[in-house]
Design a protein around this nucleic acid. Structure first.
Length: 586
RNA sequence: GCGCCCGUAGCUCAGCUGGAUAGAGUACUUGGCUACGAACUAAGGUGUCGGAGGUUCGAAUCCUUCCGGGCGCGCCA
C-alpha cells in the first residue's frame, strides 16, 4: 500500500515538472507515513512542505497542485490537505480486502520483501570464547543475532550465519591448564589452584571425565609441575607469569600429542555445551568457523604479508605493528608480539579478509558493547587492504544486568560466578527468554529482574501474543464442535460486510506488517517486530471481546473468520522470525 | 583526560530516515464472563522528553555546550 502511494505521488510530481508547473533541481522520493490519528486518514505525506522552499510556493498551494496531478487509483477514495500542508489519503475498503486476500495467497511468505535481493551477507554473532558455558549476556547477542538474521532473510538478503570459534590463543591454553590441574587433583596430587585459572565447576566436570576415561595418562607429580614456575600472586608473585609457567610445563611434560588431547578435550566439552545450548534456544548457524584453521592454512600470515605489501606494517621494540592510525584509528596496533605470537587482532584481520574472499558483499558482526573500541581498528585493516570499510557493519549489544533479590548479580567468567543461559532458559522458558531479549533496542542497557521473570512469567508479553494466536485456533475448534466449517472463499468475497471499527483496525494492522518487516530489517531492529506483534495481539483481543465471530449470518461469519485467520497467519510469520513458538493452545 | 552508547510517566521501555494533541506495559482505582478460553478487555492521570542555547514552517528526534550513568582506551582475548 505504502509503496503504491509513493508511486502515485512521484508520478504526480514528475508530471508537474514535465508540464513546467514546477522547476526542481532534484526529484526527491516521496515520504509517505501512516497517520497517528484516524481522522487524518490512513496515510499522509509531507511532500508539499518539504518542497515548498525549493518550489518557492506555499505548502498548501503546492499540495493542491500535487493533488490535481495525482493519477486515478482504486486505492485512494479521498484526499485532503490538512494542517501546515500535509496531504492525507483515505484508503478504500476494497484495498484492505485485497490485502486480506494476499495474506492467504502468500501465506508464510506474507510480509517478505526483496529489498535485500542480490546481497550476500555474512552474519556473525555470539562467538563467545569456548572457555566456559554461555551466560545471560551471551543470550542477548544470540537472540538478537538469530532474529536479525531471520529478519534479513525475510527481506530477501542471502544470509550466511556463522560462529567464530576462538580455539587458538592463550585463553584456550589457560583453560587447558585449568582442566589439567583439576585432573591432577583428582589423581590425588595436592594442587593449589592458580588465581588466574578458570574456577567454575564445569572445569571439574571435564577433568573428571578425563580422569575416568584416561586414568593416569596425564599425571605428573605436582612438585615436578611447579618446578621453575614463577610464584602466584597470593604468594607475592605475578598471576600472569604463574599461569604462563604452568602452561609451559604442561606442554613440556605432556608433550605435544598429550597436551593437544587435554586441550582438545576441554575445547570439545565446552564447545559441545555451547552448541547444545544454542540449538535448544533455537539459535542456528550455517557454519562454525575455527580461528585455528586460519593459523593452519596461513591465512593469518597472508593477511600480515598483504599489509606489509602496502607498507602499513613496521617493526618496533621487537614487535610488528599495523599502522592503523593512517586509517582513522587512535593508535597503532600490534599484530605480532615480540615473543613471536600473533595477536587476536591479527587473526581477526585474517578472518575478515577471509570473509570477503568467500564472496560476501556485507559482513554484519554482532559484538558486546565492551568491544566497541575495536571497531575502528578492524575497519582500518579493511581500508588498508583496499576494501570499503563500510562492508563491515558492527551491531553492538549492551549487556543485560541481572537483578536478583533487588541486587545486581555480579558476573565474571574467570571466577565462575555467573548465571548461565541454560539456567535462565530453565527459569523463564525459551519463548519468554527469546522474546524478552529482543523486546528492547540492542544498544539499550537492559535490566533483567530474575525474580520478576520467574514469579510473574505469565505476565510476560510473549504470552499475550501467543494467547491471541491460540484464541484464534480455539475459535476454529469451537466452530468445528458446532458442526460448522469455514468457507474462506466466501469470507474473502464478504469482506465488505466488515464495517466495525475493530475490524477496520485489525485490517490496518495486518496491512502494516510488510512495511514494518522491511523497515525492521533495514534498520536491523527486531524489537520493532516484537512491539508490532504486541499491537496486533491487542487489536485481536479487543475485537474478540466486543464481537462474536461465530454468528448466525453465514456470510458475515465467514468474513470474520477469514479476517482473524489472516491475523493468525501474521502471528505465525512474525513469531517465526523472532524464534518464538506459536502454540495452538496453551 | 579522550572516544562510543544511554538519559522520555512512580518503575521497565517504545516513539518509524525532523511532523499534526509525546505513547505502551506495569503499578493504583472502578467496571465487563449463563455467549467463540478473563493468560482477555473498558474507563480513569501522570510528563520542565536530563539542563541551557542554536538550526526551521515544525525538534524527544539534527548541531553545540554542560550535568548524570554505562562501557572502552594492553605486545589480553
Amino acid at each position: 500500500m505504502k509503496t503504491q502511494l509513493q508511486q502515485l505521488i512521484e508520478a504526480a510530481l514528475s508530471q508537474l515538472c514535465n508540464d513546467g508547473t514546477l522547476q526542481l533541481e532534484t526529484l526527491p522520493s516521496a515520504l509517505v507515513e501512516r497517520t497517528r490519528d484516524r481522522t487524518h486518514g490512513d496515510f499522509a505525506t509531507n511532500m508539499a512542505m518539504v518542497l515548498a522552499k525549493q518550489a518557492k510556493r506555499n505548502p498548501r498551494e503546492l499540495a493542491q497542485l500535487l493533488l490535481d496531478a495525482l493519477p486515478e487509483s482504486e486505492l485512494v477514495v479521498k484526499t485532503e490537505i490538512a494542517g501546515p500542508g500535509f496531504i492525507n489519503f483515505f484508503v478504500s475498503d476494497a484495498a484492505y480486502a485485497t490485502v486480506i486476500a494476499q495474506v492467504f495467497e502468500q501465506s508464510s511468505s506474507y510480509g517478505k520483501s526483496q529489498v535485500g535481493a542480490g546481497q550476500k551477507v555474512l552474519m556473525e554473532y555470539v562467538s563467545a570464547n569456548p572457555t566456559g558455558p554461555l551466560h545471560v549476556g551471551h543470550g542477548r547477542g544470540a537472540a538478537y543475532g538469530a532474529a536479525t538474521a531471520s529478519l534479513l532473510k525475510a527481506a530477501g538478503y542471502q544470509v550466511h550465519r556463522e560462529y567464530y570459534v576462538n580455539d587458538a590463543g592463550r585463553q584456550m591454553d589457560i583453560l587447558a591448564a585449568s582442566v589439567w590441574l583439576r585432573y591432577l587433583d583428582l589423581c590425588g596430587e595436592e594442587v593449589t589452584f592458580p588465581s588466574n585459572g578458570y574456577q567454575g565447576d564445569y572445569i571439574w566436570d571435564i577433568a573428571a571425565t578425563l580422569h575416568r576415561e584416561q586414568q593416569d595418562t596425564f599425571r605428573h607429580p605436582i612438585a615436578t609441575v611447579l618446578e621453575g614456575v614463577p610464584a602466584d600472586e597470593p604468594d607475592g608473585g605475578d598471576k600472569e607469569l604463574h599461569i604462563d609457567g604452568i602452561i609451559e610445563q604442561a606442554r613440556t611434560l605432556l608433550g605435544t600429542a598429550l597436551y593437544k588431547q587435554v586441550h582438545g578435550a576441554a575445547l570439545e566439552a565446552i564447545l559441545g555445551g555451547i552448541r547444545q545450548d544454542l540449538l535448544e534456544f533455537g539459535v542456528e548457524y550455517d557454519e562454525w568457523f575455527s580461528e585455528q584453521s586460519l593459523m593452519d592454512d596461513q591465512t593469518v600470515d597472508q593477511a600480515i604479508e598483504k599489509l606489509q605489501g602496502t607498507g602499513d606494517i613496521y617493526e618496533e621494540k621487537g614487535a610488528l605493528w599495523f599502522r592503523s592510525t593512517a586509517y582513522g584509528d587512535e593508535k597503532d596496533r600490534v599484530v605480532v608480539r615480540d615473543n613471536g605470537l600473533k595477536t587476536y587482532f591479527a587473526s581477526d584481520i585474517a578472518y575478515h579478509m577471509n570473509k570477503l574472499q568467500r564472496g560476501y558483499d556485507k559482513m554484519i558482526d554482532i559484538w558486546g558493547a565492551d568491544h566497541h573500541g575495536y571497531v575502528p581498528r578492524v575497519r582500518a585493516a579493511l581500508s588498508a587492504m583496499g576494501e570499503e570499510p563500510d562492508t563491515l557493519e558492527v551491531l553492538l549489544v549492551q549487556f543485560a544486568s541481572l537483578f536478583r533479590g533487588g541486587e545486581k548479580v555480579q558476573m565474571s567468567t574467570r571466577s565462575g560466578s555467573f548465571v548461565t543461559l541454560r539456567e535462565l532458559r530453565q527459569e523463564v522458558g525459551d519463548d519468554a527468554a527469546r522474546f524478552f531479549y529482543v523486546l528492547r533496542k540492542s544498544e539499550q542497557h537492559m535490566d533483567f529482574d530474575l525474580d520478576l521473570a520467574v514469579s510473574q512469567s505469565s505476565e510476560n508479553p510473549v504470552y499475550y501474543i501467543q494467547y491471541a494466536h491460540a484464541r484464534i485456533h480455539s475459535v476454529m475448534r469451537q466452530l468445528q464442535e458446532k458442526g460448522m466449517s469455514w468457507d474462506q472463499e466466501e469470507g474473502l468475497n464478504s469482506q465488505n460486510l466488515l464495517t466495525e471499527e475493530h475490524e477496520k483496525s485489525l485490517m490496518v494492522a495486518i496491512s502494516r506488517y510488510p512495511e514494518l518487516l522491511e523497515g525492521a530489517a533495514l534498520q536491523r531492529e527486531p524489537h520493532q517486530l516484537a512491539h508490532y506483534l504486541r499491537d496486533l495481539a491487542h487489536e485481536l483481543h479487543t475485537y474478540y471481546n466486543s464481537h462474536h465471530f461465530i454468528v448466525e449470518d453465514q456470510a458475515l461469519r465467514n468474513a470474520r473468520l477469514t479476517l482473524i485467520n489472516a491475523a493468525r497467519q501474521v502471528f505465525v510469520n512474525g513469531l517465526t522470525v523472532l524464534g518464538v513458538s506459536a502454540p495452538e493452545e496453551m
